[in-house]
């Protein structure tokens, strides 16, 4: 009799996010919804962790090569005086928020939903979208992005949806298959307008995924900048 659970099955992901996502994550340009997905993939994938470490080293090298901007007189003195006031403060405890059964990068977002500690995926406030599909919006303050957890009953088709951009889907539990292959926990599927496919959740187990759609609104950048006090106009 099988007693192992999905969580204990050591498996190396077979479908990785493309280099451009890892570079944007390492360099810092990736917006939060996609960064959540990439960080969660990293908690499954040693190969991409190594690649991100190398791309961060590239960032360090590039920063070393930046032209040196003159600091104002006295800036170091001001900082040293600030250190005087530091004292030996208590370092704030790192709070382990959220459910240890889910990957670390997702925990603060699930904690915000009020998931029960240790409850896993089942105890989340799923909203029923179709007979076989549940959905939870994880982040709703990013215009142009949709960031959702999806739960698809084993054997059911992932609902077809259209969008004007691209979508990354990360399998968290269970799996799905389509014409491009089978996707299991840790795997990332990429889809855009050029690709039309109909994934079906694997039989026998609910498939839990994180799906992030990026269809940027043309005006997002400039308007965000208008309201940001740090940005020069």
């Amino acid at each position: 009799m099988m007693t192992g659970t999905m969580e204990h099955t050591a498996r190396t992901p077979q479908h990785h996010p493309d280099s451009e996502f890892l570079m944007d994550y390492a360099g810092g340009a990736l917006r939060e919804p996609l960064a959540v997905l990439i960080a969660t993939h990293l908690s499954f994938c040693g190969r991409c962790r190594a690649e991100v470490a190398r791309l961060e080293a590239l960032g360090g090298s590039l920063m070393e090569g930046l032209p040196r901007e003159r600091m104002s007189a006295g800036s170091l003195g001001r900082l040293l005086r600030r250190l005087d006031r530091e004292g030996e403060e208590e370092r704030p405890m790192v709070m382990d928020r959220g459910d240890p059964a889910v990957p670390y990068p997702l925990r603060p977002y699930l904690a915000r939903l009020g998931s029960a500690r240790g409850g896993g995926w089942a105890n989340l406030p799923w909203k029923k979208r179709l007979k076989d599909v549940g959905e939870i919006t994880l982040l709703d303050s990013f215009p142009g992005f949709q960031t959702r957890l999806m739960r698809i009953a084993g054997g059911s088709a992932v609902p077809a949806h259209t969008h004007g951009g691209m979508e990354l889907t990360l399998v968290l539990e269970g799996g799905f298959s389509d014409s491009t292959g089978q996707y299991l926990p840790g795997d990332v599927a990429y889809a855009d307008d050029a690709l039309s496919h109909q994934p079906v959740a694997d039989e026998g187990h609910d498939c839990i995924c994180l799906a992030v759609t990026d269809a940027p609104l043309k005006l997002t950048g400039p308007i965000a900048r208008l309201f940001n006090p740090f940005i020069r106009s």
Binding site: E7, R11, E32, I38, A39, T40, S43, F44, G46, Y104
Partner: peptide
Amino acid sequence: PEIDPEDPAIKGDE
């Protein structure tokens, strides 16, 4: 969002 390298649940050894 970042991983916690100390997280015992972290997978993969590469």
